[in-house]
Design a protein around this nucleic acid. Structure first.
Lengths: 329, 329
DNA sequence: CCTGTGTGATGATACGTATAACCATTGAGG
DNA sequence: CCTCAATGGTTATACGTATCATCACACAGG
């Protein structure tokens, strides 16, 4: 079990002190290293295959190069997976490592971040003010994504209510007056669901439409079939459905299929997320794209602006959330 | 910026030495701590909200509690995301933190694991023998998932060829003699694609079927439409298609839909993965389930068996890969 | 009464890095 | 000639933990 190569080994190999090796690696301002020395050290590093120990570095500096991504206990759909992956990809060029941790509401957040001493915590879930204060006090940057940041906190929120509003606006524009809402079956996404539905509701109000008929739809055909049958059985039948997300929309389409109905003729359907499969639904699914790629980039730049002193990101354009018009609505 | 609470602070609070605190936390064999002392220390820990520094611990022990998950540069579908998430969930109870890193084939693996000093490296991609030898020498446990482990390496492989074979067996059983294969459009998944196709080919040979007609299908309707038209235009028309995965299968179904064809009557379709949406396709998609949940559990147990001395996992049952019979084939 | 032994704690140290403090050399300016 | 500053390094130390070596003490056996 070979011992790892340390800076001291490199120093010996290059005939300098360990401190010099460190200065060469980190380009410390206020400490000049001559070109020949730098080269000798670099050569030794290459020859020995030296890699600085992240643990030692973190211990010394008091904070690691880790960004902790805190997820609520929500199902791990393609959209969320992609968001995580993108944030990690955007942070990597800055030497920042992303660690994701799923947090149940009951367990205190502290146990998760204290031991890691991350440089930043990105939260998809809501953070309690106490947790936040603690982290601020410890010098940890707190960034929230998706849900609204507090005033003191950095972050970016995709206005979930806007998403619901846009669904309704499109359906109303197409002439629909009586809408249904396909709610998710999973209590764990209530945070998002409530906000989106709120957007739907207020948009209906603003546009003079009837209040949407909310029905939970599980991700199976019979559940959706039942919902569809109910919507169409009303005195004022629902003619269009806004779904919580694309997966729920798929379920609605499957339920309709089973009943021999077709979208948008019998019932228009609009989803949220624009998952890759949305274009392949039958009929191709009209949906709202949150453009989470921009969110990922924004979050990453915001962190890098603090840790690496790069320019602050431009505020996100408000037209980031877009309608993807296909055939289902 | 409050300094973090250290073991020394706890020691002072409890009126003991720092060493004692460490012994209380780690239950070191060969060092008894009396019950009263243990309680006093524990009380102090709770009172101060102490959490051991992971960096210092890793530095001291020479290896962190990190498990590095190495991904090839493949697209991040729902299946892979779920596998990652499950491995992380399985490892967390053992105090192991999962870090995923996507590795392009060009960059040397060493730069990724050396600095982290992970206790184990789980690889979805192939690992070069040199990389593997280096890790072994450094005492890092190497586990490979999905693709075949080498003889010395721990790991578990889902036999990708078996997947292709099972697709064919089902289609042949249903009476199909001329098969098509919907290949992925993405060069990055060649590793998996080649193996699955090989399984398809050899099964065709064994069952006396014609060699499958391989056509690449991108994840859009027109690409699939073209493929479907081609399959049906052959002198011996293809009557059933095995798709690389469920997403490709969705594309094929969409292409058929556009042509007014329906599965399985005009063309049977079978996928791989059993993604949640597979049941909601029209018609519901028949597919092969790899049961990656079992893979995740197996990998996690295998790691824990080394780090925590728990029992070795039972070898994976060979019937883990199963046919999910729905309507498309 | 002395020795041996087990229990339960402490002191000291090393892990590998970053950085503050210090120092030797050189060259310029007065 | 002496001072001063700049350059390019070195020495020493601290970060927080785990663990080895040591030790104080009590107590049993002879």
């Amino acid at each position: 079990m070979a011992r790892a190569v340390t800076a001291k080994d490199v120093a010996r190999e290059a005939g300098v002190s360990q401190a010099t090796v460190s200065y060469v690696i980190n380009a410390h301002p206020g400490q000049k290293i001559s070109a020949p020395t730098r080269e000798r050290v670099q050569a030794a590093i290459d020859r020995l295959g030296y890699t600085p120990s992240e643990s030692a570095r973190a211990l010394r500096k008091g904070s690691s190069n880790v960004v902790l991504l805190v997820l609520p206990d929500i199902p791990f759909g393609p959209t969320l997976a992609h968001l995580i992956e993108q944030i990690a990809d955007e942070l990597e060029p800055f030497g920042l490592t992303t660690i994701t941790r799923r947090v149940r509401a009951t367990s205190p957040l502290a146990s998760h971040w204290r031991s890691l001493q991350p440089v930043a915590v990105v939260s998809i879930a809501a953070i309690s003010p106490e947790d936040e204060a603690e982290m601020q006090a410890a010098g940890v940057l707190v960034v929230s994504a998706l849900l609204s940041p507090s005033s003191q906190r950095l972050g970016i929120s995709v206005p979930q209510t806007l998403i619901g509003r846009m669904q309704v606006e499109h359906l109303a524009y197409a002439g629909h007056r009586h809408l249904g809402y396909a709610a998710p079956d999973d209590v764990r996404v209530t945070g998002f669901y409530q906000l989106r539905l709120e957007g739907v509701r207020s948009a209906c109000l603003d546009l003079g439409l009837a209040d949407p008929v909310v029905v939970p739809v599980a991700l199976d055909t019979s559940s959706a079939e039942q919902a569809v049958r109910y919507w169409r059985s009303l005195p004022d039948p629902v003619t269009a459905v806004a779904a919580y997300n694309d997966e729920t929309a798929f379920a609605v389409l499957a339920g309709m299929q089973r009943l021999g109905l077709s979208a948008p003729r019998d019932l228009a359907v609009i989803g949220v997320d624009n998952i890759p499969l949305a274009a392949l639904a039958s009929p191709p699914l009209t949906t709202i794209d949150q453009n989470l790629g921009m969110v990922a980039a924004y979050v990453a730049r915001q962190i890098a602006s603090v840790t690496h002193g790069i320019a602050e990101p431009m505020p996100l354009r408000s037209d980031a959330v877009t309608l993807v018009l296909r055939e289902s609505a």
